[in-house]
Design a binder for these strands. Structure first.
Lengths: 206, 206
DNA sequence: AAAATAATTTGAACGTCGTTCATTTTTAAT
DNA sequence: ATTAAAAATGAACGACGTTCAAATTATTTT
């Protein structure tokens, strides 16, 4: 067996493990993810998990990474669904991105929740995970740049972050089924109102 | 010993327990709250905790309740710091409420985080806790009513919720020290921009 | 005041969890 | 075939929340 074949096998094991973890999170939520279950899922002894992954936290981070990659793609697709050639269209594009975020969260509820429900023993995230999170904010940057081309780059990045965070908050509370479930259509309206209102206050003075 | 004296003692034990839990959350975060530590904190045997409180989840809910009461008071104070006699002043009042939320979160970081980091075994909250959460949204209702007196009550409640949620999202991401810490002054500016922009899109047509 | 009864407190023990590590099994090299 | 290295195993560990039979303390009855 060649060296790279060994690496391939490890990689396959890792992917099977992440698959199993994802499936269990989707089925029962991140809280009921157990090392013993996962080990039996992928046909490995309990201790064998730790040959594949340093610990449970690392596994959760890998799952989170996958989820964020899919989320990133969903936001990209949302943005691509609108041609933002005018300021008005740029705002519509921002709405599309926000709606894409809501749709993704709704359709991947437990995986999406797992992003925030991770309670890691080591509080500081690996750099690749941090970058993936920060990368999500960037989707709103280009449309905002079209709204105010002359604005400072740093300020715009902060604005993108704030706008994204605001949408995030609305989605979080809206999907918090412990409180009152708001219908999807109403949620989308609220999100659209919020994004449009925020952006009206951001367009360059005519 | 009279009947009520017994009840008093229980009440005192409960309060001591909540105090101890709060202190530990403030010192080390909710994740490192241990039954054994708390028992020794209040001078009771391990099993004795369960004479005071049904389980750890119930204790967390009691702590959350206290925190929400204090938060509620802080929002009330924020609102009271502005006399909202005109539409313009109503917007300023909304900004004050949002700033009060941010300030409270920043000044009570771990207790505030504990509100969301609770992972309860039983997912549905007791009614008193649910009401306390929903009650937080209501602070934005009166100012919004002044902005659009003719608007539908239900729609306004939903708007208040959305606006609060948006501010919440900005605060959550802003205080997420795992990413990039934004200075408090910049945060306040962002929050003010967001609230004002959202409200401009909500005033009655003149 | 003593005995009987009820209420409360106790801490050892249980079940579950993530993680470790000595042992065994499998694989690769000689 | 022999040996050495690598990988997989699962019993055992420590930490955790929770339970419960036993001990202790308080109350009532005689």
């Amino acid at each position: 067996m060649t060296l790279s074949a060994i690496a391939k096998r490890r990689q396959a094991q890792l992917e099977a493990l992440i698959d199993a973890a994802e499936a269990r999170i989707i089925a029962e939520g991140v809280a009921s993810l157990k090392a013993r279950d996962l080990a039996s899922d992928i046909g490995v002894a309990l201790g064998g998990l730790y040959n594949i992954v340093a610990d449970m936290d690392m596994l959760l981070l890998k799952v989170a990474q996958r989820t964020m990659e899919r989320l990133d793609a969903a936001l990209e697709a949302g943005a691509a669904s609108v041609v933002a050639d005018t300021p008005r269209a740029a705002i519509t594009q921002l709405v599309a991105i926000a709606h894409a975020y809501y749709d993704f969260s709704r359709n991947n509820l437990r995986l999406w929740r797992a992003l925030f429900e991770m309670r890691l023993k080591n509080p500081d995230l690996p750099e690749w995970n941090r970058q993936a999170q920060l990368g999500l904010f960037r989707h709103m940057n280009a449309p905002l740049a079209r709204l105010r081309p002359e604005a400072d780059e740093v300020a715009r990045t902060l604005t993108a972050r704030t706008l994204f965070a605001a949408v995030h908050g609305v989605v979080v509370i809206g999907l918090e089924e412990r409180l009152i479930a708001v219908p999807a259509a109403a949620m989308k309206q609220q999100i659209e109102w919020l994004v449009r209102a925020a952006c009206e206050g951001f367009v360059s003075p005519a």
